[in-house]
Amino acid sequence: MSIIVTGGDGYLGWPAALRIADRTDDRVVLVDNFARREWVEEIGSVSAVPIASIDERLDAAEEVLGLSNLSFVEGDLTEKSFVDQLLAVHEPEAIVHAAAQPSAPYSQINGERANYTQHNNMQATRNLLWGLEEQDMTDTHFIETTTTGVYGAPEFPIPEGGATMENQGERDEVPFPAMAGSWYHLTKSHDAANLRLANSQFDIPISDVRTSIIYGTEVEETRQDPRLKTRFDFDYYFGVVAHRFAAQAVAGYPVTIYGKGEQRKPFGSLEDAVEGLARLGVMDPDEREDDHVVYNQVTRPISIVEVGETIAEVAREHDFDVEVEHFENPRDEDETHQMEIENDRYLDLIDGQDVTFREGIEDVFETLTDYEGRIESHEDRFLPGVLEPDE
């Protein structure tokens, strides 16, 4: 038997695969087509942290961490024949599906990239779910990283999964409506609906892990050797807001906040995210709460201005002279929205483990100070407008 981790070369998939492999004797099969490396190169950027080849990574995992149960398969999950062969050969007891085109800005560049994002993300999920059904593997625990972005920014507390709807005096729990704000986020809204359908029609046990804004450079496993590092994107298209702010500080730029920046967004550390996926990946069937569970993979909502100010404070402690500056907001958003989001189920999953935002950012600067030149040579990638729609 085996556990498959898709997106195994990625920011979250790679360290999650290392931790899963450390907690099981099963074969852990990483699957990737290296598209993330290609997308970032396409928009003219790089990972601030140099990333080893997959062969070098696997060698280091065995030599340094003693993990001899990791293997890698290169392939495109949008090709059904590849997925069918993957499942037939490895017969997974669990699949951690972390492969996707994850950038909302990238999906918004033009129609071609919107189409690509939606086809890539949804086709991969459908192929995996139908492959399990058609090959009689419906006991396989299917764990997918969707996104808290499916919720949008409602004015009421966001539930951890469904919502209660009342009409003409009758009440029932219904799936949370898709309120996503980008072509990327809608792929995860559709995936969430397809996951629910696969559970209903095929009885596949589903864990829908709605991932927040994940920040950080290290987990316990990646600290052990440079070859084990995970990627760190800082450009406008693939760098999350906390990573962009940190890279701006390292490059001598002010931390740029759009508008007031008082809106709160959901955040979680890389360490916490990896821990949650690892526990789900090796979870025994009798430990599962239900056969379809939604987790809000977030430890706390934080305002963008608090993110910026915390990053500036930590940057100064590392001898970077940085200020926080506010710019006109190019986005149509409520700059004062105070998000509330339920996350009790997720905190129970990770046993209350909680890396604070400041702790995670201190880790980021410990890493990025070694790569100032790499960031400065790509500092024109911080802001939008550097990639023309027809490029």
Score class of each variant (00 low, 15 high):
His185Lys: 08
Ile54Trp: 08
Ala124Arg: 02
Glu155Gln: 12
Ser103Ile: 03
Ser377Cys: 04
Gly276Gln: 03
Thr217Phe: 09
Ile350Asp: 04
Phe142Ala: 08
Val28His: 01
Met165Leu: 14
Pro285Ile: 00
Asp284Glu: 14
Asn167Gly: 00
Asp290Asn: 11
Ser107Asn: 05
Ser107Arg: 00
His119Pro: 03
Asp225Met: 12
Glu155Pro: 00
Lys260Asp: 13
Glu376Leu: 15
Ile206Tyr: 12
Asp139Ser: 11
Ser103Trp: 02
Tyr116His: 07
Ser303Ala: 15
Thr310Cys: 10
Met283Thr: 05
His337Phe: 14
Gly276Met: 01
Pro384His: 03
Asp286Gln: 04
Thr24Tyr: 05
Glu218Trp: 07
Phe72Tyr: 15
Gly8His: 06
Arg345Leu: 13
Val324Gln: 00
Tyr106Val: 08
Ser200Ile: 06
Val31Ile: 11
Ser45Met: 06
Asp172Gly: 03
Lys260Phe: 07
Pro266Ala: 12
Glu309Arg: 14
Ile214Asn: 06
Val364Leu: 11
Tyr253His: 13
Gly360Ser: 10
Thr125Asn: 14
Thr356Glu: 10
Gln263Leu: 02
Asp284Thr: 09
Val96Cys: 08
Leu86Gln: 01
Thr336Met: 10
Ser189Arg: 08
Ser200His: 13
Gln85Ile: 04
Glu317Tyr: 05
Gly252Phe: 09
Ala104His: 02
Tyr184Asp: 11
Asn199Arg: 07
Glu134Trp: 06
Ser182Tyr: 13
Asp55Asn: 13
Lys265His: 09
Pro159Lys: 04
Gly259Trp: 01
Gln135Ala: 11
Leu186Met: 13
Ile214Cys: 09
Ile109His: 06
Lys229Ala: 14
Ile213Asp: 09
His318Gln: 07
Pro154Gly: 10
Asp348Asn: 14
Ile350Gly: 02
Asp59Gln: 13
Tyr346His: 04
Asn110His: 01
Gln135Asn: 11
Ala273Gln: 07
Pro159Tyr: 09
Tyr258Pro: 05
Glu340Ala: 09
Glu38Cys: 09
Gly111Arg: 08
Ala61Ile: 00
Leu368Cys: 11
Val31Asn: 01
Tyr295Lys: 02
Asp235Ala: 10
Leu349Lys: 00
Lys188Ile: 04
Ala99Asn: 02
Asp26His: 06
Phe357Gly: 01
Gln108Cys: 12
Ala312Phe: 06
Glu340Cys: 05
Asn120Arg: 05
Ser68Ala: 15
Ala104Glu: 08
Asp390Lys: 04
Pro105Gly: 09
Arg126Val: 15
Arg19Asp: 10
Glu328Ala: 12
Gly239Ser: 06
Glu335His: 06
Glu340Pro: 02
